[in-house]
Design a protein around this nucleic acid. Structure first.
Lengths: 208, 208
DNA sequence: AATTCCGGAGAACAGTTGTTAACTGCATGG
DNA sequence: CCATGCAGTTAACAACTGTTCTCCGGAATT
């Protein structure tokens, strides 16, 4: 099925990816609404007009970055939810997975945290849609577990959303603590684990 | 004590406030890192150079906006925490207080949500400092309650931070649902209340 | 082998930006 | 009443922005 695409489209996708990467890099110290088209092409070493061959505007580029960033986050969610073992083990494992993800894709995490409430509406909506998809998946995963017996669909979605939001907040806190002392990252990990434990306890006694 | 300041300084503070207000308005559809100095002065109807009489840069203006926005939020936190009555009553009352605050100061809420992870470092830090202060206050308030017996200081701070974050998330969700159907706002209120209830249950059984 | 297609380059456009300097008019303190 | 201080103005600066049009060279198609 994979028709090895010609040297033509290969080059196109290459510069396209270069534009996306350059933009992600520039967004480390500004937000999307101030990212200029020329700024991106200059960083890649390509003419400003070449930008239009790939994206209609920087907002358009932002929407595509959402797919890329949340695409990398998607598999992590799966392994977090489907973790096995004792409750406390699963929590520390989940927090550790988040920390590793932040280390591996800091720019992706920063982009999502920044633009989730950022100044560009289409990007905000794209993030909201994807996160809603994530919450839905987590909800289904939670519904399959025995301890979810008697939970209404709405309550399960509430819990799933809480987990997704908490994951993002934790990731953002890890990011802030990245170029700080190691003890700061440890502190973030500890309070994140405690928050998850509190939620887990609340979940366990929900039915009363 | 309040020495009615001369007509000179009165005018200065008046245009200064006009600049802050205009900036807050312009930030409805962009983020601080793309806010231009000329853009703000144009909205007020004043020469671009007049801006320098009040702020060193737009980042500087942003830091002052943090004080203003979180200053308006501060009393709300107090009344939320010190609410009386049955547990469920207090939750619905707290959510209602948040909803009213978003209705009264939508631009303030938007600004904080947007710039908390935004592209301007000094502003991010100012917000982080203020929110840490809030969490500290909530922690002290929580420590005074009888059900907090046996809680460590670190656990209380964890819980306080969770409440503060949850409040901001709820406020942001109310904001997104503002110009939507009333049923959407109702849905936000319901799931926010359920989240708080879950946390409350977890708090109640924390000691086991 | 000839022709079409298309990613990218180049130049030019009107409009914007932050920042400087030297100014004006008026409230203020002596 | 007069001199100082200072919020706000005007003019000019080089640098930057998004967008259009025209062109080129090489891959793709026939």
């Amino acid at each position: 099925m994979s028709h090895t695409l010609g040297i033509r489209q290969a080059q196109k996708q290459k510069t396209r990816q270069a534009l996306l990467d350059a933009a992600l890099g520039l967004l480390e110290e500004q937000s999307l609404s101030s990212l200029g088209l020329r700024e991106v092409t200059r960083a890649v070493g390509v003419a400003p007009t070449a930008f239009y061959r790939h994206f209609r505007s920087t907002a358009d580029l932002g929407v595509e970055l959402v797919e890329e960033a949340l695409g990398s986050l998607h598999p992590m969610i799966g392994s977090t939810v489907s973790a096995t073992g004792d409750s406390d083990e699963r929590i520390t494992r989940a927090v550790d997975l988040i920390a590793r993800h932040v280390d591996a894709y800091p720019a992706h995490v920063r982009f999502i945290a920044r633009e989730r409430h950022g100044g560009v509406q289409p990007v905000r909506e794209a993030i909201r849609r994807q996160l809603a998809r994530f919450a839905e998946e987590v909800k289904v995963a939670l519904a399959g577990r025995p301890e979810s017996a008697g939970w209404s669909d709405e309550d399960l979605l509430m819990l799933a959303g809480l987990y997704v939001d908490q994951m993002l907040m934790t990731a953002s806190q890890f990011l802030e603590a990245m170029e700080g002392p190691a003890e700061e990252r440890e502190r973030v990990a500890r309070t994140a684990a405690r928050r998850l434990r509190l939620v887990g306890i609340g979940r366990h006694h929900w039915q009363d």
